[in-house]
Lab assay of single mutants.
Amino acid sequence: GHYRIRINGREFEIRGISEEEIRHLEEALRNGADEKILKEIVDRLRG
């Protein structure tokens, strides 16, 4: 998958993330885990 997200007015492209991972992120966001989720995304993109 290849997705664009906007955070604090800046747009980011996220590549190589699966539909299942996105559902997991959405679930966590609904549970209020904003900073933790951003850290997970950044860590994943770093490799």
Rank of each mutant, 00 (worst) to 15 (best):
E21F: 06
E35S: 12
I17S: 03
K36F: 11
R10F: 15
I14Y: 01
L25E: 00
N8Y: 03
V42D: 02
A28V: 14
N8M: 06
S18D: 04
E21G: 12
R4M: 10
R30F: 08
E20I: 07
E20G: 07
E19C: 08
R46T: 15
E13R: 01
I41M: 13
K36H: 13
G1N: 08
S18T: 12
L38Q: 02
A33S: 08
E21Y: 06
L38G: 01
D34S: 14
G1S: 03
N8E: 04
L25A: 01
E40H: 08
G32P: 03
G47D: 11
R15K: 12
E40Y: 04
I7H: 01
I17E: 01
K39P: 02
G16K: 02
R15D: 05
E20M: 08
Y3V: 15
H24D: 12
G9V: 00
G32N: 09
I7S: 00
R6C: 15
I7N: 00
G32L: 07
R15T: 12
Y3D: 09
L45P: 03
F12L: 04
I41G: 01
Y3F: 15
A28P: 00
R44N: 08
R44C: 08
I41A: 04
H2N: 14
Y3T: 14
N31Y: 09
G9N: 04
E26L: 10
E11N: 03
I14E: 00
L45R: 03
I22H: 03
E19N: 10
H24V: 13
L38E: 01
K39I: 15
I14K: 00
E13H: 09
K36V: 12
H2Y: 13
R10H: 15
A33M: 13
K36C: 09
E27A: 11
E20V: 09
G16N: 12
I37Y: 13
R46L: 15
I41S: 02
I14F: 14
E11H: 03
G47Y: 02
K39E: 13
I37S: 07
S18G: 07
G9H: 01
R30T: 09
G32R: 05
E13N: 02
G16W: 08
L25G: 00
E40S: 11
R4D: 03
E21Q: 13
E13Y: 11
I14L: 13
G32V: 06
R46K: 13
N31Q: 09
E19R: 08
A33W: 13
E21N: 07
R30N: 09
G47I: 14
E11L: 07
E21K: 03
N8V: 01
D43H: 10
E19S: 10
R23S: 11
K39S: 11
R30E: 07
I22S: 02
L45V: 09
R15F: 14
E40D: 10
F12V: 10
S18N: 06
A33I: 13
E40W: 13
E19A: 13
A33C: 09
N31G: 10
E11Q: 03
I41W: 15
A28I: 14
R6L: 14
R30M: 13
K36E: 10
R46C: 11
L25T: 01
Y3C: 14
E11R: 01
H24W: 14
E13F: 05
G32M: 07
R30S: 11
L45E: 03
R10Y: 14
E13S: 02
A33R: 07
L29Q: 06
E19F: 12
H2K: 04
S18I: 02
G9P: 00
N31R: 09
R44L: 09
L45S: 05
Y3K: 08
E19P: 12
D43K: 08
G9W: 01
L38R: 01
R44D: 04
E11I: 10
R46Q: 15
G47L: 13
S18K: 05
I17G: 04
E11Y: 08
R30K: 12
R15I: 15
H2C: 15
I17D: 02
R4V: 15
R10Q: 15
G47K: 11
L25C: 03
